[in-house]
Simulated assay, not measured.
Amino acid sequence: MTMSCDDAGTKPVRFEVFTGAGRRREWADETRARILAESYAGLESVSAVARRHGLCPSQLFTWRREARKAIEAAAPVFVPAVIEPASVTAVPERSVRRRSRQARADGMVELEIDGVAVKIGRGADASVIAAVIDALKVSR
């Protein structure tokens, strides 16, 4: 603020005196880690933890974001797979046969007319199927 010499004694003037260097506070890593752990504990809000320690809430949110990024950067992208040899267990032959029949039966239609069973495979012509069904009906 500048004043001319004419009104030096007639108007009140306000002065602010700053003490200290006005530099940023530095937090020890242990203290910062403890505050971060408190903010993740979930017992109170992040803003309440920040205010209790004399921080701006935005500063604590920044610390949390930086900590998440550091963890993500340190984490491996791929996790190695460990393959152990499986113990060989005897599979009953009956279950194997059922599976193979089921695999083949997926594309088949099975009809039973008057005790006569007819299996029709994939890709069969519709006119042939109709002729077989008609023949079964007539013969009985």
Results as ranks from 00 to 15, higher is better:
residue 20 G to W: 06
residue 53 H to P: 03
residue 41 A to L: 00
residue 33 A to D: 15
residue 120 I to N: 00
residue 126 A to Y: 05
residue 121 G to D: 14
residue 36 L to D: 02
residue 114 D to S: 15
residue 96 V to D: 05
residue 41 A to P: 00
residue 64 R to D: 01
residue 118 V to H: 00
residue 88 V to H: 08
residue 72 E to G: 14
residue 106 D to M: 10
residue 8 A to S: 12
residue 95 S to Q: 11
residue 90 A to P: 04
residue 78 F to G: 03
residue 14 R to Y: 07
residue 5 C to W: 08
residue 138 V to R: 11
residue 20 G to N: 03
residue 35 I to G: 03
residue 67 A to K: 03
residue 119 K to V: 12
residue 64 R to I: 15
residue 1 M to G: 15
residue 29 D to H: 04
residue 133 I to G: 01
residue 42 G to S: 04
residue 7 D to C: 10
residue 38 E to G: 11
residue 77 V to G: 04
residue 25 R to D: 04
residue 22 G to H: 00
residue 105 A to G: 15
residue 113 I to P: 00
residue 98 R to A: 10
residue 38 E to A: 15
residue 97 R to L: 12
residue 115 G to A: 01
residue 62 T to C: 07
residue 52 R to I: 01
residue 58 S to H: 12
residue 5 C to I: 13
residue 9 G to Q: 09
residue 106 D to A: 13
residue 82 V to W: 08
residue 86 A to T: 09
residue 119 K to I: 08
residue 39 S to R: 03
residue 121 G to N: 07
residue 26 E to H: 13
residue 28 A to R: 04
residue 49 V to D: 01
residue 118 V to F: 00
residue 98 R to C: 08
residue 28 A to K: 05
residue 17 V to A: 13
residue 125 D to E: 08
residue 137 K to T: 11
residue 15 F to N: 06
residue 133 I to H: 01
residue 69 K to M: 13
residue 112 E to K: 08
residue 130 A to W: 03
residue 51 R to F: 05
residue 136 L to T: 02
residue 115 G to P: 01
residue 5 C to M: 08
residue 133 I to Y: 03
residue 56 C to S: 14
residue 52 R to K: 14
residue 37 A to W: 09
residue 104 R to N: 11
residue 135 A to K: 03
residue 121 G to T: 15
residue 33 A to W: 04
residue 110 E to L: 02
residue 115 G to H: 00
residue 92 P to S: 14
residue 75 A to V: 08
residue 69 K to G: 09
residue 97 R to D: 12
residue 96 V to I: 11
residue 44 E to N: 01
residue 57 P to G: 10
residue 140 R to A: 15
residue 92 P to F: 05
residue 139 S to I: 15
residue 63 W to Y: 14
residue 95 S to A: 10
residue 89 T to Y: 07
residue 122 R to M: 05
residue 12 P to A: 09
residue 62 T to A: 12
residue 139 S to V: 15
residue 61 F to G: 10
residue 33 A to E: 14
residue 84 E to F: 09
residue 39 S to E: 07
residue 39 S to I: 13
residue 137 K to W: 05
residue 93 E to S: 10
residue 28 A to L: 05
residue 103 A to M: 14
